[in-house]
Design a protein around this nucleic acid. Structure first.
Lengths: 213, 213
DNA sequence: TGTACATCAGTGAACGCGCGTTCACTGATGTAC
DNA sequence: TGTACATCAGTGAACGCGCGTTCACTGATGTAC
């Protein structure tokens, strides 16, 4: 967020400099503070220190802004997973577990953003920028899964199993946070689950960086 | 939805009869057709054939209506899982798989409603009616998981593993539907995953209807 | 280096919209006697 | 069985609100000569 630090100190009335990115920054902050219901074009403009009609010069309406925010989210998401992976031991299982930790770290620290990225009806998932960013994120997960097989339905089965597990765990633990009730979720860590998953070493050799078949 | 069939034929201007339930019916229909963004008090009132201020006599604002809709959703959800379970062979693994099928059937046929139930920031999850309805749904899943253990973290670990997997699979496959892109999700069925999960028969005896520890 | 001009980026007033909410009302219903 | 009255459930007009969007504008910037 260092991009935003000079936002208030800038006195130039016109020519913000990088309003496009600043509006996305603002949007992510608002998302964090008030959830998706509080996210508006006018609110983002105000937080970026700009008139409420300025965003129209950079985004095609609300959908455009939400889509750009989601794309940025996927890039941060990818970074978080890669960072965790690089801190792990260079063994397939450790690498996958590290990626999973990165996944959940991001989803827990950016709940509303994660939600926007994965389930919003107001985002244009055909947008090339977004498609590209989300494909890169998926690739990290897929590479982590590549050394393993789960059943006989091919590599995608492992990916979908792990991804579903993480996506579900992320959503449920977020909901558990918002509920005062005692929740079974509260007592189970992801590390109570991951080590016991049925993941066999793949018999056919595959590269870990390329996605074949 | 048979409750709603006479809605338009009723000519009584006052005293709808069961407006509380009719507004929930209307809300579920609107949710199905337009998603949560299109769900408004005024819209529900209109669909129930009643003036826009009538809902105020039955619900504490929007949050009250959303909460009631979510509670109804959980009851339908529970019914769907139980129906599938009762059509299954009476073996632990078959029963659990049947419950999982019921789970995904509901989430796929009621995407927006499922989303409201599990991730809306606008629902009051402290509401007793809702808490009760969701606890009953959870109980069905927990009973299905009871014969099994996953790792050594106790019964909750199995429940959370299965629940996360289903919740995640539901959310991702819903998103895959809305995306034109070719999606790895499209090629993998839940039955490519469930049979290969690490679920050992529990060694300590437990009743399947009571929830211990 | 200076000037003229085109383009770009943000302004601020104005618009219409649908929303939730309020409120005095009225018609229908139920009950006490 | 009839009457009076209280209560309930829905009406419809009105309100203010924040929203996205439009549009003529203006100040800043870049470029050609």
């Amino acid at each position: 967020m260092s991009r935003t630090t000079n936002r208030k100190t800038q006195k130039t009335p016109h020519h913000h400099g990088d309003l496009y990115e600043a509006l996305i920054d603002a949007g992510i902050e608002i998302l964090q503070e008030t959830g998706v219901a509080g996210l508006t074009l006018r609110g983002c403009a105000a937080r970026a220190g700009v008139s409420h009609s300025a965003p129209a010069h950079h985004f095609e309406g609300m959908e455009g802004l939400l889509t750009a925010i989601a794309a940025r989210g996927f890039r941060l998401f990818t970074e978080t997973m890669i960072k965790e992976r690089e801190n792990s031991a260079d063994k397939p299982r450790e690498r996958l577990v590290a990626i999973c930790h990165g996944y959940l770290q991001f989803s827990q620290q950016n709940g509303s953003l994660y939600n926007l990225m994965f389930s919003s009806e107001r985002v244009n998932f055909s947008n090339a920028n977004l498609t590209c960013a989300s494909a890169l994120a998926y690739q990290v997960l897929a590479d982590g899964c590549a050394p393993f097989e789960h059943g006989s339905a091919g590599p995608a089965a492992t990916e979908i199993m792990i991804w579903s597990l993480l996506h579900g765990y992320a959503g449920l633990s977020r909901k558990a946070q918002h509920t005062d009730q005692q929740h079974p979720m509260s007592n189970i860590r992801i590390d109570d689950i991951l080590p016991h998953l049925e993941l066999k070493a793949r018999t056919t050799k595959r590269g870990s960086k390329s996605k074949q078949q």
